[in-house]
Design a protein around this nucleic acid. Structure first.
Lengths: 113, 113
DNA sequence: GTACTATATGAATATATTATCATATATGTT
DNA sequence: AACATATATGATAATATATTCATATAGTAC
């Protein structure tokens, strides 16, 4: 928890609760929002081991191409995925170890309880 | 990642992607949904070190009592918080170490980048 | 250039979510 | 019983979100 809680008044005995600053709150919220939708979780889970093209993702997960593309844009904006181009095909892969780790932890936690 | 990926056809060389089962997907989604709202994050963050009554939460975080109550119900349904009664006052505290741990990790990650 | 394929995008719709207000319920006190 | 206080709940309205369809864009081959 680091040192998030400190006195910021001058009463020696009283500890005042120190809120999360607005930007941290926003970043944390966004990270979890990315993982709060089943489609995005399925996509990230698919990308765990290897890269896939947009159409491959759509086929494997039985989703519309446009649905996948919209969600990939969402994930790309948060820098949770990246892509490389090969001709007209874009291969997407995950790009945030921390988020993938948290997803993995939570999946395993859910599987074992 | 455990053994989430297995063959389930009879082609010896081909590995077929094994999807998350529906219930796991649901549980994981719900857990992250709990953390995808700034009000709920603020409440859980407040509860990190000690219990608070509903009115205390509302005062400290500058929220309406009914907003806090609604969100606490949400968190209680997911068993992320519990409460004890003292007279007419209900003291809420967190009740899921795994989720609090993930929240903590993500806050620290956000703070240090 | 045209044709083909892969992906992205905009608009619309449907659904979900959140905060608020007003009120109900529950507990304690007199 | 009446009253005060703490919390919960239902209804509503505002906002956000996800999916779909239709179409646009970008790259490749000819």
């Amino acid at each position: 928890m680091d040192d998030e809680k400190l006195n910021d008044d001058n009463s020696p005995g009283e500890k005042k609760y120190e809120e999360l600053d607005e930007e941290t709150l926003f970043v944390v919220t966004q990270s979890f929002k990315a993982l709060s939708d089943p489609t995005r979780i399925r996509i990230l889970h698919l990308l765990f081991f290897k890269e896939y093209s947009v159409n491959e993702i759509a086929e494997v997960l039985h989703l519309k191409q446009s649905t996948v593309s919209h969600q990939l844009r969402f994930l790309k904006n948060l820098r949770l995925v990246k892509f490389r181009r090969e001709g007209t095909t874009l291969y997407y892969s995950h790009d945030d170890k921390h988020v993938m780790d948290i997803l993995n932890q939570t999946i395993n936690h859910a599987l074992h309880s």
